[in-house]
């Protein structure tokens, strides 16, 4: 096992042990703070109830990622190709992130209903920004001498994008995508809190109202696993797509 993996695992186990000891020795009731073993028992024991809801949330997140990619990639390409587009859109992009998602959620539920659409849009709004900004930064970071080389070859804008800028920016794109998928759960869950009949956010609201804090934590556990899983999945895709990077990094 890699040493880099051992340290966070050890820290995680120390925190869990301290938490467990605090709850047990301090006599903390489960409806205030359940111990980790109790949370794990509920997460696995009630998996039949939780997993279908987790599936719904996962669909919302994946659809949100797809939506964010559909918007972010052409947006970043457009802003890179035409600086005027970047100047025109930059204030709106920043404003879109300055508005708290909590403020947007009720409006989106009113406009798009209690179904999947409002949650997908919430997740998409959160994810698209880091992807757009990272990709744009990636395009901009392209070395001047390489740009000159393509200019001297007589490459069209599309050729330069395909053969130079896009591969150049891919490491930045994946960095943005990793940030995006890590926070994607926030958008989907907030959407579910405001108005939904399914999903882990809905389970959390229902459980909280009944003081079933262990179930709330169990839902959080599944959400965290989902986030970590998506992050790891992006890492695997990145490694496959940027197969040449290992050789370059070890140079």
């Amino acid at each position: 096992m890699k040493r880099s993996f051992l340290f966070p695992l050890a820290l995680f186990l120390v925190v869990l042990t301290a938490w467990e000891a605090f709850c047990r020795l301090g006599g903390i009731p489960d409806f205030i703070l359940p111990p980790p073993t109790r949370i794990l028992r509920v997460a696995l024991g009630d998996a039949a109830i939780l997993l279908p809801h987790a599936g719904i949330t996962l669909v919302e997140i994946l659809a949100g990622i797809a939506l964010a990619l559909t918007v972010a990639i052409p947006l970043a390409v457009g802003m890179h190709a035409q600086p005027a587009v970047e100047r025109a859109l930059a204030p709106f992009l920043i404003a879109s992130q300055a508005v708290p998602v909590f403020a947007l959620a009720p409006l989106l539920v009113v406009w798009l209903g209690y179904g999947l659409a409002s949650k997908v849009l919430m997740a998409g709004v959160i994810i698209f920004f880091p992807i757009t900004v990272s990709l744009l930064e990636g395009f901009k970071s392209c070395d001047r001498n390489y740009r000159i080389l393509f200019q001297l070859m007589g490459a069209s804008k599309l050729q330069a994008l395909r053969k130079l800028y896009w591969p150049w920016a891919l490491p930045y794109f994946f960095a943005g995508l990793k940030v995006g998928v890590s926070v994607a759960t926030i958008g989907a869950v907030i959407g579910e809190w405001v108005g939904a009949q399914q999903g882990l956010g809905y389970v959390m609201i229902q459980a909280n109202a009944r003081l079933k804090v262990d179930l709330v934590f169990a839902a959080i556990l599944w959400l965290s696993l989902m986030g970590v899983g998506l992050w790891a999945l992006v890492g695997i895709i990145e490694k496959r797509w940027l197969w040449w990077k290992d050789a370059s990094d070890s140079e």
Binding site: Y146, P167, W244, K245, S248
Partner: peptide, 12 residues
């Protein structure tokens, strides 16, 4: 044809 100081090979 213009050859610059660095090789400017694309790493991918």
């Amino acid at each position: 044809a213009y050859m610059q100081q660095s090789d400017l090979l694309l790493p991918w």
